[in-house]
């Protein structure tokens, strides 16, 4: 279990992270979201001990997280880097050895991992001869092959195509089921919504959202309706409490003043019986993200 308590870090005049706290339990995935410069990488670096926080502390299973705990970490930095002249095997073996896994063990596991991530290439291939996507996968294997208890992935989905992104999702889910505590950052809400149990959103170093993913959405109330009915946009907008109507696929997306308005919309839409879709939901994470990213915290 990773506990982060009241982390603060500033660079000169700029407050990079302020008063940040969160907990990631074993077998739990935390999605860290925020725009560029929100403090995601700084947060990771403080957890890893690469940066010293101005204040606050990081705990692992109740004790302060130190260099001694570094073997249980799997870290994928935002900027990827591999030794281009090494072979896939040498590279993975070296990184795993740095995390305390014996070369023989790594070599034994490597084929399985390469298969799981569908790496196109042999273990004797030089890294520089692999395609960018395959290099990325090798980097992921090098991050995860020692089965870390704490996994930190900085923008793991960036520049992955949907097929590979889902391979990565599988990989993360697998570690989760093995009981690893996982933190990853992303600016793609799709991935975050799909796999994270918890969510932390940063905006210029301030925590603007923090909690269980579903609860965060629920807290905004069921103020969105996706509807496909005989009603026109004008008719929908005329209902009291409907703030806006937007075209959405074959129907409309409505914003409501409060969840109660939903009942009136439902009654109006179903007055002639069957309708194809009526779904009342809280705002999507994407919407919350854009809402929060635009609004000042004060």
């Amino acid at each position: 279990m990773l506990q982060v308590k009241n982390l603060n870090k500033s660079f000169g005049q700029m407050q990079a992270v302020s008063n940040e706290s969160f907990t990631v339990n074993d077998g739990e995935i935390l999605g860290l979201i925020g725009q560029n410069g929100a403090g995601k990488t700084t947060t990771f670096r403080m957890i890893l001990g690469l940066l010293k926080p101005d204040a606050g502390s990081v705990f692992w299973n109740g004790h302060p997280f130190t260099r001694k705990d570094q073997d249980i970490v799997g870290f994928l930095p935002e900027e990827r880097g591999l030794y281009l002249k090494m072979t896939v095997e040498e590279q993975v073996v070296y990184f795993a050895e740095l995390r305390g896994q014996k070369p023989a063990v790594t070599k034994q596991k490597l084929d399985d991992w390469m298969q799981r991530f569908a790496v196109k290439g042999k273990r004797t291939d030089k890294i520089k001869d692999l395609s960018k996507g395959n290099q990325q996968k090798v980097q992921l294997i090098a991050t995860l092959i020692h089965e870390p208890k704490l996994v930190i992935l900085d923008e793991p989905f960036s520049s992955l195509d949907p097929v590979n992104a889902s391979l990565l999702e599988d990989g993360i889910e697998r570690l989760k089921s093995q009981g690893s505590a996982i933190i990853f950052s992303s600016h793609d809400m799709g991935n975050v919504e799909k796999i994270s149990d918890k969510l932390l959103m940063l905006r210029q170093g301030e925590t603007v959202l923090n909690g269980v993913t579903n609860e965060i959405r629920e807290s905004f109330g069921d103020t969105r309706i996706f509807i496909q009915s005989p009603l026109t946009a004008e008719e929908l907008l005329a209902i009291d409490g409907v703030l806006s109507v937007k075209k959405y696929q074959n129907g409309f997306e409505l914003k409501l003043a409060n969840p109660e308005v939903g009942k009136a919309v439902f009654a109006a839409a179903t007055k002639d019986g069957y309708i194809r879709e009526f779904s009342q939901q809280p705002p999507t994470l994407d919407e919350i993200f854009r809402m929060k990213a635009g609004v000042s915290h004060e």
Partner: peptide, 10 residues
């Protein structure tokens, strides 16, 4: 080549 981040964290 940004390998350093991995090295330093290990």
């Amino acid at each position: 080549s940004r390998i350093m981040e991995i090295l330093v964290s290990s």
